[in-house]
Simulated assay, not measured.
Amino acid sequence: MTQDTLSEAEYDAITDAAAHWCMRLHAADCTDEERRAFQQWHDAHPLHAFEYEAMLEIWDVAGHLPRPETALVVPVAQPARPWRRYAIAAGVCALALPLTAYTGWHLGWLPNSYEHFAATDNVRQVTLSDGSQLELNLNTDLTFSNYKDERRVTLKKGEAFFTVSHDTSHPFVVRAGEGRIRVTGTRFNVWMYEDQVRVNLIAGSVLVSSNRQLPGDGLRLEPSMQARYKPGDYMPQISQTYPDDASLAWRSGKLVLDNLPLSEALPLINRYLEKPLMLADNSTGAIRVGGIYNIKELNNLANSLPKVLPVYLTRNKEGNPVINPMPQQPPKS
């Protein structure tokens, strides 16, 4: 069986099987025997793996569907091909909610469009189905879902520059970390590393919230302003940026460090590294570093640090390079 010769029934059977395994592997009573059976099915054909990965991504969306106390019963029609995964994932995740994709769209629970984009070794430019333009930095992963009441990007990791298609009736929302950025049409950059998020506004205006669970839309940014937040922040920290700000140099393949302490520089560096650099202690984090670096060559940076800074490298038990300050010479008597 090849992907080119699959009938519609065969394709649907694979989608159904992917939904079944997605449900079973997320179940608390999933057995080792079932996991082995899943692995055999997964490895039997490339399309099995493709459909299962697609189902996992939609599970992430559909898993947040509301569950009413009484199941909503609606006439179920056979969904068209673009809706099939959404309808199945919704039914699997909601369980007690027999929901078609058509109804899910009109209730604002399911998107009518879902896209996944990733950039690994190169900066990537993509166009979303709503016409918005994105530039993705290295090691970036995000999804786009088009809901009835909003367009939603979920930034899973990395950094992206957004030129959002203007639509005041259909807001554009970026979820990054625990917060969100809400716009109708504008140009801005979102950087995320581990639990830190930074938003730079270039044109238009955005509303930034550090916690999606809090009421309100957050703080408004105007052009040349930046917002930062991390988990636990009640509000983002707002600051002004300047014409010589180099935070968007990645769009030209560069990372610019402007005499930053290592404690601030490492989050900017580490997101490009296979093994993140660690600090031996707080005093090491106060050592300053500067320079302009090619983002594709930052894996070589660790070995070059002792040549330009008063530091030496060791490795911890996980194999991460650790930056240590050079011991100070005792004063001569």
Rank of each mutant, 00 (worst) to 15 (best):
S205V: 02
P223H: 03
N303G: 15
Q39V: 04
V74E: 05
Y293M: 04
A49K: 14
A90S: 12
G131T: 03
S283Y: 10
N324G: 06
D195N: 08
E34F: 00
P215K: 04
P261F: 09
A119V: 06
K156P: 00
Q328W: 15
N189T: 07
N211Y: 05
E57Y: 07
I14T: 03
Y193R: 04
R36F: 08
Q329M: 15
N282H: 03
H106M: 06
L110N: 09
W250Y: 14
R228D: 15
P267V: 14
V74N: 01
N324A: 06
T5E: 12
A160H: 01
W105I: 07
T184V: 13
L138D: 13
R212C: 06
P267Y: 03
W83F: 13
D12E: 11
N122C: 13
E33A: 15
L134S: 13
N270L: 08
K254R: 14
E69Q: 11
P98G: 03
W21G: 09
N200D: 12
A101I: 07
D281A: 01
E69G: 06
G285R: 08
L72W: 11
R81I: 08
D195I: 01
M225R: 07
G63T: 06
N303A: 15
Y102W: 05
L25A: 12
E150A: 07
R175K: 12
L25D: 11
A49I: 09
A18W: 08
Q78C: 01
D16N: 09
M235H: 15
F162I: 06
P215H: 04
L97A: 03
D281E: 02
G91H: 00
R81H: 12
L257Y: 00
P46N: 08
L72Q: 11
T2N: 11
S224P: 00
T15Q: 14
S263G: 02
D32F: 00
A13E: 11
A37S: 07
I287W: 01
A176I: 01
F38W: 14
G185C: 09
L25C: 13
P243L: 12
V73M: 09
G291D: 01
Y114T: 02
F161T: 05
Y86I: 11
C93N: 15
D281N: 12
I323A: 13
T127I: 11
P82N: 02
L97K: 02
C22V: 10
E264R: 09
I269G: 09
L155S: 01
R36C: 10
M192E: 08
A176G: 09
V174M: 07
G91M: 10
M225S: 04
M225K: 04
S145N: 06
